[in-house]
């Protein structure tokens, strides 16, 4: 048995978003109008219509986490320049079900319990460093190629 939402979730996790051609394919496969696929894609929080960044940061905004002060992490990320771009995606999420470890932040799938601002700053700066290293590496390897070509 195939379910529309399961199939869309698979596409979402494969690509990090729902590409238009995939949505059209699902529309044909399930024989439902594309408008309904679009309504589902925009109704449920799990779907996005644009690609997510290389690093995904979730701040839990469940009751126990907010009462434990998780809102300040959003400010921290904003201040650090974590924007929705190709490097980073920030998404608040409603409860991971790890409430006794509140406040919880999930970075690239790893759950960090009892988070503090200073710890978050450390982890995110590390990600920034890695990103800039990667882009440096890209440049050097490109430079090497240029040199070779010359």
């Amino acid at each position: 048995m195939k379910f529309l939402i399961n199939s869309l979730l698979e596409i979402q996790s494969k690509h990090g978003y729902l590409p238009k051609n995939e949505m059209e394919r699902i529309s044909m496969e399930f024989n439902v109008p594309i408008s309904r696929i679009y309504s589902i894609a925009t109704f449920y929080n799990a779907f996005s219509l644009k690609p997510v960044g290389r690093h995904v940061i979730h701040v839990c905004k469940g009751t126990a986490c907010v009462m434990g002060g998780s809102e300040v992490f959003e400010d921290t990320l904003k201040q650090m320049g974590v924007l929705d771009d190709e490097d980073f995606t920030y998404q608040p999420i409603r409860c991971f079900g790890a409430c006794s470890l509140a406040p919880v932040v999930v970075i690239d799938g790893k759950v960090y319990g009892k988070m503090t601002v200073s710890r978050l700053k450390k982890i995110v700066s590390k990600l920034f460093e890695d990103e800039s290293k990667d882009s440096d590496n890209d440049k050097t390897s490109k430079g090497d190629e240029d040199a070779r070509e010359a």
Partner: peptide
Amino acid sequence: IHVVRGAGAF
């Protein structure tokens, strides 16, 4: 039994 996943809607 089949498993259907939710997609994040309370």
